[in-house]
Amino acid sequence: MDRIPILKMGPFLLVTIQVDLYDRLALNLENDLITMVSKTEARGVLIDISAVSIVDSFMGRILGNIASMSRIMDAETVVVGMQPAVAITLVELGLTLQGVYTALDVEKGMELLQKKIGLNLLNNEEEEADEDDRNL
């Protein structure tokens, strides 16, 4: 069965959608991504849709689902590279992807994710440092 590859980049997962999604493929992506988030304990998910020319309400719902499900597992989702025509169409359709972060490109998306989870990371490092101190 067709699958969209998911790349692991440090604490983040990166998905680049290069094909026109049909429903089964989109549902598979949702499943695979959530499984990956739980398996790798990823802190963030980047979905690059710069090559996607059509996002309808079904596809929009999948993106929203991925974001909500990841959030429960403590991972933030950023959708990057949406085409202007797609953005205009989604707004007209009445779909504003509440709860999903967006960024212009993968680089900016990565920055955003780092900022979003940065505070948490800092806290963790401090905790770890404390532990180290104790070990000494």
Binding site: S53, I54, V55, D56, S57, F58, Q83, P84, A85, V86, I88, T89, E92, L93
Partner: peptide, 17 residues
């Protein structure tokens, strides 16, 4: 134009679904 194409195709996609 691209924007109008996208609107039409998205509408068509909704109706077909």
């Amino acid at each position: 134009s691209l924007v109008n194409q996208t609107k039409l195709i998205t509408a068509a996609s909704e109706l077909v679904r």
